[in-house]
Nucleic acid binder design. Structure first.
Lengths: 205, 205
DNA sequence: TTACAGACCGACCCCCCGGTCGGTTTAAGG
DNA sequence: CCTTAAACCGACCGGGGGGTCGGTCTGTAA
């Protein structure tokens, strides 16, 4: 019993630290030794729990990344109010800059997506699936907004969802060096402007 | 005299092929041998012309990438008409999918930007400078549009420019696997929707 | 106490890849 | 021609990093 606990504990420590460092330096730019050194673990310990670096990362994605994306970007959408402010709010939180040593998990999707795009199609697929879930949820909440009279009838919900995701991912690229704190504010402002044009009060062709 | 020509010719062949393969597979995932084999050149030839892989890539950026970004995204902005349709048109062209073996140079900014972000700050800076030039030109043309009465006075031109760039870069991430040809169309539609809300005919608070 | 298996150790293997260097070919100038 | 240097060749080096493997330690079950 204690054995099983020990295993889970070690695997979890590996995953958590792995996500932290992969996110910080990139997957291909991080060696297993980088991570193992931080945890005072050996190669042997690692390969006892995971069959490869790739397998390890997939575990991280499925256990941690999915969770964080859900918490930050999907679950907040479950509401009966006007979806537009809700979406803005979730994006604003997901773009929150790093505080102390706390990680910002919403940030990492774009980074990983780009890194694996031309390198590892399997991992790439897992990541795109996560985006897809987000997209589906966005579309669904937008459609509900239409029914509830918050969003104009002519609006193409799929198009809007893609556009939101694209602008979010792009902001991530632009903000990745933390050089311009104004960017986030500008982004939210423009998003509001754009959302204004989707509201039911506008011409409903 | 013929000597000088030979040098330029070889360097140019190296840069062109390098851009092609780096763009296709990524910088860190491409070895010099990959490129040299395609050109039937040797390590010796390469290091005769460039002092390192990094130096080589910087040449590529300064000679080729800058040029293409200008041609696709900056120069089209030089017009006296309403800037909004002009911007849409340039983005549409820059998102054109690959035809035959022709490269789409507008596509590569986001890829390279992400790849070097946490890996090589010098190259990163060169790339961000290119984006900056684009941004400055966008802001300038938007401001002119305001003066000419095409854009509402309340519009924050810097914010709009950032937003355009972010959404473009994000689209690049989403489109990078060429899986969904619909995406581009949706994006342009939503961009038009957004631009509609910037036009002078709307409330000018 | 003993047997066994799971957790962990770390030296080692091997390939990849950027970079080096002594040598060879080629062509311009005297 | 002959000299000279630029253009080019390709074997080699060395570090990094994923993955292996024989061995050790430790807790559990009989």
């Amino acid at each position: 019993m204690d054995r099983n606990l020990k295993k889970r504990e070690t695997m979890h420590r590996l995953c958590a630290k792995g996500l932290e460092i992969f996110h910080e330096k990139g997957y291909y730019n991080t060696s297993l030794d980088d991570i193992l050194k931080e945890l005072s673990l050996s190669k042997g310990a690692f390969y006892h729990h995971f069959k490869s670096k790739e397998d390890y990362f997939i575990s991280i994605v499925q256990n941690l990344v999915v969770q964080k994306v859900y918490a930050l970007l999907v679950e907040p959408l479950n509401t009966h109010e006007n979806p537009l402010p809700i979406i803005i709010d979730s994006l604003e939180k997901a773009l929150e800059p790093v505080k102390h040593n706390e990680m910002v998990y919403g940030f990492m999707l774009n980074d990983f997506l780009m890194e694996f795009n031309k390198r590892n199609s399997e991992i790439s697929t897992y990541l795109k699936d996560i985006i897809k879930v987000w997209e589906v949820n966005l579309v669904s909440v937008l459609k509900k907004g239409k029914v509830d009279g918050h969003i104009a009838r002519h609006v193409d919900c799929e198009g809007v969802a893609s556009y939101i995701i694209a602008s979010y991912l792009g902001m991530r690229t632009l903000m990745s060096d933390n050089s311009n704190p104004q960017l986030k504010y500008n982004y939210i402002q423009q998003l509001k402007q754009y959302f204004g044009s989707l509201e039911a009060r506008y011409a409903d062709a």
